[in-house]
Write a protein that binds this DNA or RNA. Sequence first.
DNA 1: ACATATTCCGATTGAAATACTAGGAGTATG
DNA 2: CATACTCCTAGTATTTCAATCGGAATATGT
Lengths: 156, 156
Amino acid sequence: MKLSTRARYALRMMIVFARQSEGKELISLNDVSKEANVSRRYLEQLVIGLKNGALIRGKSGKGGGYTLARPADQIKIRQIVESAIGPINIVDCVLNPENCLKSDVCECRILYQVINNRITGILDSLVLADLVDGSRLNEAVKVLDTAYSNSPAPGV
Amino acid sequence: MKLSTRARYALRMMIVFARQSEGKELISLNDVSKEANVSRRYLEQLVIGLKNGALIRGKSGKGGGYTLARPADQIKIRQIVESAIGPINIVDCVLNPENCLKSDVCECRILYQVINNRITGILDSLVLADLVDGSRLNEAVKVLDTAYSNSPAPGV
DNA sequence: ACATATTCCGATTGAAATACTAGGAGTATG
DNA sequence: CATACTCCTAGTATTTCAATCGGAATATGT
């Protein structure tokens, strides 16, 4: 039940790209690598997903780098995470019920689906711009918390 | 972002114990093993957590077996899952911020905490009795869904 | 008493996912 | 035309997860 480092690095990269994009400049993976203290080679792999998901644009050659493909408030957190680790499904049967012989009578399946829906729901309701701007995030979380009355956010 | 088989087997076992407990009889892991089609040896390991969590009671010797330590409506799903896989924390920094040098300025930490709280919230609000009785579960999910207005349950 | 069915405990192996490294081709720039 | 990048693909290392195994302790029924 862990969020992989792939997903976390992807989020951190996107935050860096978003900050840079305000100045419309390209930022290279070498720079991101230094800033995030993660090997460039590894980031290269993760960035492929973000590119395929059309969240960023890359430009080769000297002076090249990456930039957001669209404004940070139009990029859902879910898109970032799923670009990195694929579709969210905490148990295989949630997306592929045919893989489970008992899916029609399974007592737990509804539970798994509910959890899955909650997770994707949160990721859908937040955007990259929220992560970039702390106060925006706090606001978005507050909205979530009034809708989702139980389990309030921790003291942040 | 998967729920491990440990957790899933633990849930299935607890459902079996719950069904049997209505008749107050003990049920052996051999029987559970046959019913669930999982090796007894493996179930033995998983059952340790459930026992340490005081969710079930075991009795050794011939005719021995396990039974719920308390009524199924007083056992939260969260307790079952956490007995199997330990505390829910999708990212280490959620429970152990001191392990992350940047925890005080990390843009993502709030996000991780929110997701974590949602998951534990759901697991806290459902009990074993809900899983045992399908109609009870549907009811509980419906309640959750009206409170949590977005991301409705799938067509189940 | 004793064979038997069970829980209980710890160690080990096997398999798979994850994290990370590495080489090198292609591409634009100044 | 050297340079600084992206881009693509393969391989290795590490860790986590799943499952197996041997055997001691415990209670039961006969």
